[in-house]
Design a protein around this nucleic acid. Structure first.
Lengths: 346, 346
DNA sequence: TTGAAAGCGTTACCAG
DNA sequence: CTGGTAACGCTTTCAA
């Protein structure tokens, strides 16, 4: 708990020189810098957070607002929190958690008490109440996810539409003419912002390519895969030979089980691609082709934008979509011309 | 972003009166208080966090350290984070996240920079490196979980040993003479602090009651329940008729599936009790008796202790174990004397 | 390249 | 019951 004046004394310089040496905001002679650094090390000095907040312009804290909704997929969510925290530390920022009911009220609170420099918004709903609040806030915010009404907001997300379209492209390139989407349960389409985008991308590209397409959104859990089995049956009866999966890992498993139960092989009889997964699809039997949702990609960008938001040249409002990447693991198989691994023409 | 002097002016009182009215640290006349509260409301005043930290003694922030280990069970973990955050808000405290590698280094950092008033320690390993650090820290800490070496520490947790013993008691009371424990995978016994405690309680009480007991710790995931099925088979071959489950929800499901596959009914042929579950065991088929791990109970107590740690009368070091509660849902069935619902004699 | 000193917005002590 | 005011520990002009 040494203070800056002790460091100054130990280094034989003034307080302000220590401050500048530490912040790097003005040039310090090599010798002076060395002595200061040594004093800092010897005294294990760390600037007082409160004093820094009060005197300086910044708190070095991001607020992370995340209403843990009842149906939030915990593992995916945790990945985003972790990725955000790691990204923030790269800029010497800490993360303050605003959860539950405080997810909204807390934004106002931390903004007007100067507890945070910016707000990162997670778990975004299509009609999120934090949208209106973010516009009125006197600190910047970055949404990780895209609400329906995002005018004036800075948003970051995987390009789910392009991801779904890319999956369709790969199935089409492998010769499939009838494809199916196994999506999240219907409720997720109301509470989350991205399932509708996957569906839209899937249907649009299928239509563009003249493919037959259908969508099933089985309920997860409870009935032990019965709903998933029924969904798969329904798709197969419609002649589907290519499957796009946008659902949780348990449903992935259930789909593969259902196929196996019917004696169908992957990719021999049915091709399968996973879209937007945050979990490892290579540990399935067989390993699945995937266009992953990479939390680190979104969160790194979000934090970069948050940092930039605090400069004199803040980023322009708008949606930053991250380009999807196709990872091949053999669950779609080779196309006739062997071009599956490459991105099909857009 | 109004400041305290504006509030003072609007209310026609001094700055210090406003401060005291807000903190409640001295008695204020009803009329004065009313005028201040009105001014606060009209100006939407909120004390500046940095100034408060600097001038006052407290930051109103708890650091929550949680190394998201690779095998951390995300849903359970999230429940604890959420419960901690909610408990903290009851005292007007916010939660700062220290994750990953920062879980340890961050403790030192927030302590010596005065960013937090206390540290809450989650995801405790048997030989946790945060133990030694906590002892050296100049702010108090509360462990949610019990490390092997916990001398001098304040720890809070469910009494897992008593929980396992209570489960054994219920099985014994229902007439079962040979019982089995389906535990977490072996690795979890090294990385987490509570699986060994469940096992110890299980074996000790079984021995005390003269029951045959055996333990299986199947690997989860990967092999799609094959390991779980094998574990159940092994237990059944040893004549087990009563099962204690201390494992994740997927393994619960796999156990019930394995029993069903053998044509065994619950509780008719085999009785089943779940211990330490953070998920809902009533949605299984059949609903399972459970001695739950209730994050809110642990986190509420942990936060209470953290608050008390900052008073002149801090809590004595030691382990606070929360008494287990048996919730009956019919998966063990009636004892001969009908006394299953009551706690058997200790 | 360095110093001195004026804030930053509260809290809490000392008076009254 | 209420007011003045000295800290709190740092950042950042302003001067040299």
């Amino acid at each position: 708990m040494a203070k800056i004046d002790e460091v100054a004394k130990a280094a034989g310089v003034s307080i302000s020189t220590v401050s500048y040496a530490l912040s790097g905001k003005r040039t310090i002679s090599a010798e002076t810098r060395r002595r200061i650094e040594q004093a800092v090390r010897e005294l294990d000095y760390r600037p007082n957070a409160g004093a820094r907040m009060l005197a300086g312009r910044r708190t070095n804290i991001f607020a992370l607002t995340e209403p843990f909704r009842a149906d939030t997929h915990a593992p995916a969510h945790m990945s985003f929190v972790l990725a955000t925290s790691i990204a923030a530390r790269r800029y010497d920022y800490d993360v303050l958690l605003l959860t539950d009911e405080e997810a909204t009220a807390g934004m106002r609170r931390v903004a007007s008490s100067g507890l945070a420099d910016a707000v990162l918004v997670l778990d975004v709903a299509p009609d999120d109440e934090r949208v209106g609040l973010a516009r009125r806030l006197d600190i910047p915010s970055v949404f990780i996810g895209v609400p329906n009404d995002h005018e004036g907001l800075v948003c970051v997300d995987l390009d789910f539409e392009a991801a779904a379209a890319l999956a369709v492209d790969h199935l089409a390139a492998a010769g499939h003419r009838s494809i199916g989407l196994v999506g999240h349960p219907p409720g997720a389409y109301l509470r989350s912002n991205f399932p509708p985008r996957v569906r839209a991308g899937f249907e649009r590209r299928a239509a563009e390519l003249g493919l037959d397409s259908s969508v099933e959104r089985p309920e997860a859990g409870g009935t032990r895969g019965a709903a998933v089995r029924a969904a798969v049956e329904a798709l197969l009866e419609r002649g589907v030979t290519g499957l796009v999966l946008h659902c949780d890992d348990a449903t992935h498993l259930a789909v593969l089980d259902a196929l196996a139960a019917r004696g169908l092989s992957v990719p021999g009889d049915v091709a399968v691609v996973s879209v937007g997964a945050t979990f490892d699809t290579t540990s399935f039997q067989p390993p699945l082709d995937v266009i992953p949702l990479i939390p680190q990609a979104s969160c790194d960008l979000a934090v970069d934008l948050a940092m930039q938001s605090m400069t004199p040249a803040p980023p322009a409002p708008g949606v930053r979509l991250i380009a999807p990447e196709y990872h091949e693991h053999g669950s779609v198989g080779e196309a006739a011309d062997g071009s599956v691994a490459a991105h099909p023409p857009d």
